[in-house]
């Protein structure tokens, strides 16, 4: 049984301990960011090769005139059957690995062998728009689940840093139990609360508002419980790069 995360956004204070802890553990350099033309606390503006983890901030005034400020610590979902791997396997075997023991989906140095178009296909295969490519090195990267730490019996760096219990990590069945327990509680206040694609991913989000109020790629388009093939098909983006290689 693989490991899973439960990310209970109803407890997230967006302190960004996780975002920074991730960078510090992985030794990722900082990006030059700006508020100009942006005007948001969400910085950097998007996931990138130097940020495997990004807290997204989304705000609105709800129908009752109440401010809803939603925080979404975004990262790879470590899919149970990762479509990105299926896609990459058709091009470069071993570019993406799946550690069945932990459930971690791992991008290796071989991702450099993926062309820009190949990468676009891999990214498009991801229902959550996670993979990012360094244009200079060609390396494709994202959250590693801190697989090194997990194998050493440690918590992922982001989970370790979380003060409020928003980030949780453990055996998949334990996390699913916790997720359902938390959901039942949160629904008393927010009836629309839901778990995001729990059957398909090992990074399960609990959200207390509609998915569109957390960001663009919060849920897979046809979740829940779609199979790998379906997911691939439904990802439905041009398989241009892939076909180039196949022909």
């Amino acid at each position: 049984m693989p490991k899973s995360f439960l990310i209970d956004t109803s407890r997230c204070t967006a302190c960004r301990g996780c975002q920074i802890a991730c960078k510090e553990w992985h030794g990722l350099p900082a990006n030059k960011t700006k508020q100009y033309g942006w005007g948001s606390h969400q910085n950097p503006q998007d996931l990138n090769p130097n940020n495997y983890k990004l807290v997204r901030f989304t705000e609105r005034l709800d129908e009752n005139g109440v401010v809803r400020w939603n925080f979404f610590p975004d990262q790879c979902r470590h899919c149970v059957e990762p479509p990105c791997k299926d896609m990459a396997d058709t091009v470069v075997e071993g570019a993406i690995l799946h550690d069945k023991e932990t459930g971690a989906v791992l991008y290796t140095d071989k991702t450099r062998l993926l062309s820009e178009d190949d990468f676009a296909s891999v990214r498009d295969a991801c229902p959550y728009n996670i993979p990012r490519r360094d244009p200079e090195t060609g390396l494709v990267s994202k959250c590693t689940m801190c697989n090194d730490r997990v194998h050493a019996g440690m918590l992922p760096a982001c989970v370790k840093s979380c003060p409020t219990g928003a980030m949780n990590f453990g055996e998949r069945d334990e996390m699913l139990t916790l997720a359902n327990r938390r959901l039942a509680k949160v629904r008393k206040t927010f009836p629309e609360a839901m778990l995001v694609d729990p059957a398909d991913v090992n990074v399960i989000y609990l959200i207390a508002d509609k998915p569109e109020f957390f960001g663009e790629y919060v849920v897979a388009e046809n979740a829940p419980s779609m199979g790998r093939r379906q997911l691939l098909a439904k990802a439905g983006r041009p398989f241009q790069g892939l076909f180039d290689h196949l022909t």
Partner: peptide, 21 residues
């Protein structure tokens, strides 16, 4: 961690990948 999961992944388990594996 359940079972013998405390051992590190061996290179064999991970194929011939280079870093970060």
């Amino acid at each position: 961690l359940s079972g013998a999961a405390l051992t590190c992944l061996s290179l064999g388990q991970l194929g011939n990948a280079l870093t970060p594996v």
